[in-house]
Amino acid sequence: LPEDMIAPVAPIASELAIAGAERVIQNSGVTFRIGGGEAFYSPTHDVVQVPPQIAFLEPINWFRTALHELGHATGHKSRLDRDQTGEFGSASYAKEELVAEMASAFACAALGIVPTVRHADYIGAWLEVLRADEKAIFRAASAASKAADFLLACGEERP
């Protein structure tokens, strides 16, 4: 490849990355609460809750977690309308977790956020889904790309 195509990309200043993530959160249209001891998205109430940033060993991971939960929120029927009816441990639950985690990874990459990745909680369920369906990763990546695009559009600066 030509040299200009393989030159390293300058990292985005952390304050700009964080500002971009905060715009996504603020403009997502999702009720976003900070508090409690667990991060979750409630499809019934269309609410994301994330513990305070101080609860994270590495504060940048708060943004990864927030974007993961907002990734779930993109599946709400008023947004991208994904199936979110799966019970914990089910294949459909694992698929949704894979979509949310990939959406978070895509959004973090686009915003210039470099979190510490923690997949151990879900990797077993993901492997079952991926083994059962050879196209699952492509479906998840497609849904995650749509979710990340949705979130990133929320974070665009508006005049």
Rank of each mutant, 00 (worst) to 15 (best):
A91T: 08
D149E: 04
G29R: 15
P59V: 12
D4N: 01
A39I: 15
Y122M: 09
K146N: 04
I6D: 01
A66G: 05
L1T: 13
R23L: 10
E134Q: 11
A13K: 10
I12H: 08
D133Y: 06
T31C: 08
K77L: 14
S145D: 09
G71I: 07
S78H: 04
A73P: 04
G155N: 00
S104K: 11
A55S: 08
P115A: 10
D81L: 07
S28Q: 06
V24D: 04
E22Y: 02
E69R: 01
S104C: 11
A91F: 06
F63Y: 05
P52G: 05
H119L: 08
A100L: 13
A107F: 01
A110H: 03
E101T: 08
E58R: 11
G75E: 10
P11W: 06
A103V: 07
E97V: 09
I60Q: 14
L151G: 02
A140G: 00
I6R: 03
I137W: 14
T44E: 14
I34S: 12
R118P: 05
Y122D: 01
T65I: 04
F138D: 05
Q26H: 13
N27L: 10
D81E: 13
S90E: 01
E134W: 06
E96C: 03
L111P: 02
R64W: 15
R139V: 11
R23E: 04
P59Y: 13
G86Y: 00
L127Y: 13
A39L: 06
E97N: 06
I25C: 04
G20K: 10
D121K: 07
A144R: 07
E97Y: 08
I60Y: 12
G75M: 04
A110K: 02
W62Q: 00
E87T: 07
D149Y: 03
R118E: 13
N61R: 15
A94T: 07
A140P: 01
E97M: 15
A73F: 01
V24W: 05
F106H: 08
P159N: 04
T74S: 08
A10G: 04
G86F: 00
A55H: 11
L152G: 00
A125C: 11
R158T: 14
L151V: 03
V129I: 09
S28C: 11
A107G: 01
K95G: 07
A103C: 07
P59W: 11
I113G: 00
V24I: 09
R139M: 13
E101Q: 06
A55K: 14
E87G: 05
Y93L: 06
A147D: 12
I34G: 08
D81C: 10
S142I: 07
T74L: 04
L1H: 13
